[in-house]
Design a protein around this nucleic acid. Structure first.
Lengths: 200, 200, 200, 200
DNA sequence: GATGAATGAGTCTTCATTCAT
DNA sequence: GATGAATGAAGACTCATTCAT
């Protein structure tokens, strides 16, 4: 799209921002956001300190950007996996997605540690927004709505969704990261069963 | 003010520790633990800075002690309220306790903000330990065990308990403190219903 | 907006410098020179940062240019007002000018704050230079010289002039901006009387 | 007054504060307050950075303390010198003090540079406050009051005092530090003459 | 001429913890 | 036991100026 020459400069600029993001993500994952200084980030990215503030207003700014991006990524990874799921009943579809989400968290523990504070909330928001989302998520939402319509509490559909969301993230986080009160292998069946009960 | 009688000395010693705790609790509640400096605590307690380190290893130390104590207090408050509950069925008893717990959180929002990170875990631990607990809690635990024995997953009783615990705290915290995705008035029925479904 | 006719180019060039000056002046007046970053100036002028350094060597450079220009402006404003003053005696003429100057400062307080450090000195220089000044100032200078010639210290005419100048600016600044030790309404008579005494 | 031992610790504490002040004063005089970093001050005093903030709230804090102290010192130096002045007439006494003050400024040029912004105002305040000052200043004030009572404007005595104060400091500063529009040797007679005229 | 991305030294301030008295 | 002076590493953020395009 861009001219070859004009693209060079814009690309370079973008590249610096990306380098900053990548360095920050690595450091945040490895040592946590609190233990990471802006100084560390710029050193990691190989740019000057001022450059950081050219692209981000503060450390909190880059952190929230990374968390948002990575959360979305994790959700979409789970969504991709869930796509192929072909269950006859709605509830199996939804529970199947929860299952995939748990697997996604399990696959990237440091990331889970970084984002788990915001994960459930972002997950909930992704579910809610009817625009800008991919087809899989919209379909999932449809299944969920169908489920709720048949249930005894259609008016509280969103709150039930939030409950499922919180339960999923809380249980997975404890099982995967802290291995308490049990590892994810033992915990997952309990989680899925609980979700199933809440929804049916 | 100085007690004339011997024994005042031991009391004095204990008293300093207590004063430190009280000052810290007030400050932690009012401004948060991060925003409270050891300096603030000792000023509040009217002792010297070095004295703080005579009784506590670090700021984290006093924080966790306070959180543990206050969490236990909140749980017992709920327990006291739940004591009189006379329901014919086990499940009603357990759900009744969750209800009381929600009310206890609701009554002391600043405390909830301070302890919510550890609340569910401490709650779970209280339930688990068969010693040092009061009769009400032990009875509750019995009811819960009966419930699980009848269910399809008696071996996972503890994990189900953890699930209930996490769900309760997560939903209550969001509803009470952040009022998201709804206030506690709307959220509580959904929570109690979900708990009931998980347990039945 | 682009002028069709040639010459627009030269105007354009000049225009950028002017825009920079105007933006800087506004910002300096409103927030002070220290609190104004070059960044703010170029944003205000709608030009790139590098462009600033095409026209000015530094921030100090543009500041001193503005201060000089604005000081001259204020002096000339006072001069214009004083032009019509028709007093029979020389001293009344000079005191009348001081009076007008005070009024000029009073009319533009933010400007006074910006330039007061250099005001008296610039004022003195304007009086001294016999070239490039308007007729009113030259006439004023004549009256002053007449006055000094009659006095006991003709050789120190310039120093007396400086004294008057400093006294005027110092007293006016404190009275107008800080309202200390009194407002300009009470201070002006004292100032004019003091000037009159110094000169007679 | 203090016990020998108890005095040791208090003295040590005081000593550190003093070291900080001395280091700061030297640096402020030599390079100006703006060009001096807190880092420089603590290095100069041989203490840790945190120690600085144990005794002063900020750089501005120590600066204003030093300026106040040094200003008072300079005024008292002049006062001491003026003490012996035995003139028959009030005006000679007052003018004599101005003379001494000029000499005090002249003797310590770097200090004059540091404090000249606040000098005239502090001088004025010292004159005004009828308490906590030494006898010489009170006597001076009496002479001045007598003078004003005889004059045509007794109600404006304080304002005239302020005028004299401003004139003295402004003229001295320019003559001594900048040597403009003339050195202090030529300027002083003009200053004293002007003061005399203002007061008579 | 014009641009604006990049620089990086420089600044103040906070605070948990120690230790000599 | 008690004190509180001293520590000093750590940290976030600013901004005048340069220079490759």
């Amino acid at each position: 799209m861009r001219g070859r020459i004009a693209g060079g400069i814009a690309a370079k600029k973008k590249e610096k921002r990306d380098r900053l993001c990548e360095a920050a993500e690595t450091l945040f994952r490895d040592h946590g956001a609190d233990a990471t200084a802006v100084e560390d980030i710029v050193r990691g990215a190989g740019v000057a300190k001022g450059t950081f503030y050219l692209y981000f207003r503060s450390k909190a700014d880059i952190l929230s950007e990374i968390v948002a991006a990575k959360t979305a990524e994790m959700i979409h990874r789970a969504l991709r996996k869930a796509e192929s799921l072909r269950f006859p009943r709605e509830i199996d579809k939804v529970v199947g997605f929860v299952d995939e989400l748990v697997e996604a968290m399990r696959r990237d523990v440091p990331l889970l540690e970084l984002i788990h504070h915001n994960l459930s909330w972002n997950l909930y928001r992704h579910f809610l927004s009817r625009t800008g989302n991919d087809a899989t998520m919209r379909e999932l939402r449809s299944r969920f709505d169908d489920l709720m319509r048949e249930s005894s509490r259609p008016a509280d559909a969103e709150l039930v969704l939030f409950a499922v969301t919180e339960l999923t993230v809380a249980l997975s986080y404890n099982a995967i990261v802290r291995r308490e009160p049990a590892g994810i292998a033992r915990m997952k069946p309990v989680l899925l069963d609980s979700v199933r009960r809440i929804l049916s």
